[in-house]
Design a protein around this nucleic acid. Structure first.
Lengths: 205, 205
DNA sequence: TAAGATAGTAATTGATTACTATCTTTTGAG
DNA sequence: CTCAAAAGATAGTAATCAATTACTATCTTA
């Protein structure tokens, strides 16, 4: 317990980021203080400023951490699938998995998007979402070209709806108070989404 | 200007609530202070506490105000439509209209749902969303019974996606930074939603 | 019009915030 | 083994927050 009190900077930074991600799962991100982060890490508050120049820098690091992980997970999931529709499903489920593993992430993202001023962290969230949207749109266009999706599909709207479907599940879990139920509701949500975009009138068999 | 400095309590309360709703359109709700509310109202900070026992009470009043207005608008829109599908569309558009009129509302709702502890305001948001969800589910079931919607429709998932579709639009506008574009994107979003739930393979003509 | 009730002001409170200056302990390379 | 640099502890700072105080201006009504 008292063994690892002194850590190299890299590890301490990593632990700080993970602490914030964890804390976002239990607290309103806006109410997370440097003191509460430090307490969670069993370190004094001042110690954090050995590794980060400001609190904003911590948030930036957190968003960066999440952005890297989530995009990596999505890409990995996408690589294994063959058709565009299968790719969408894999990405959807990978996204849900990530959220269930890190329940604080949606709260953190939302919290950043609340900021009126374009803080660095907010800009990174915007960029992440933007890239995500473009990736989806390209995928949807490909599916349309292949005849897998409706010929008259509005791929921009469909990309927005993809994200919205996940958002709806997140919101649903916020209402219910249980994050775990997302996983159960996810397949039904994706099936419904599919029925809106697929060319053939067919659910998952 | 200096005429209406003294107002009856009811009017001052109403003005306070509207001020907070307005402020939510420009600031992170979590960063709204009693001082900033008072400044926006051209009143001293202490004056607020003549009408509200605490800041939390202000938030409760704000959520109450929004909940009443939005439900009233939704019900009014629903009454004019005949079929369940037409009712859904009317509610969708009424919801979008309300958001474009009060851009701070989604931010405010989100902000309340961020709270970990079940504050009175948070509970009210939960209750509002819950009622909304049930209303939608009943409507979807009716549409299914009438053969207007898919026979195999998962109405719970469809209700969640209805909210999610709006959420997606909100998020999209948060990314773009423009709230006005919601109105332009709304029809396409609802058309896509329809294609997922409607019995007939047909968009809006 | 006198008197009580209502609404608002100005100043201040203790608590909390992000951040910093200074001292102490730990670590690891030579 | 030594010792400098890295990492953390201690103990602050100024600023900001919600809330409260003592007092004043305005309205209502008997």
């Amino acid at each position: 317990m008292s063994k690892n009190r002194h850590l190299p900077a890299d590890e301490r930074k990593e632990l700080t980021v993970r602490a914030v991600v964890d804390l976002c799962g239990r607290e309103d991100p806006a109410r997370i203080t440097t003191a509460s982060i430090a307490k969670y890490m069993q370190v004094t508050q001042g110690a954090l400023f050995r590794h980060f120049p400001s609190k904003e820098a911590i948030w930036t690091a957190v968003v960066e951490w999440v952005a890297e992980r989530v995009m990596q997970r999505l890409e990995r999931a996408a690589q294994q699938a063959v058709t565009p529709l299968a790719t969408l499903e894999a990405m959807f489920m990978a996204h849900i998995d990530f959220i269930t593993e890190h329940p604080g992430v949606p709260r953190m993202m939302m919290g950043q998007l609340q900021h009126a001023r374009p803080t660095p962290a907010r800009r990174m969230v915007q960029g992440l979402m933007s890239r995500y949207h473009q990736r989806l749109e390209a995928l949807l266009e490909e599916g349309r070209a292949r005849g897998e999706l409706r010929a008259d599909l509005d791929s921009a709207a469909a990309a927005t709806q993809f994200i919205g479907t996940i958002q709806g599940l997140v919101m649903q879990s916020l209402i219910a108070g249980e994050v775990g139920q997302i996983r159960d509701l996810a397949p039904g949500a994706f099936r419904l989404y599919c029925q809106g975009i697929a060319a053939q009138r067919s659910g998952t068999p």
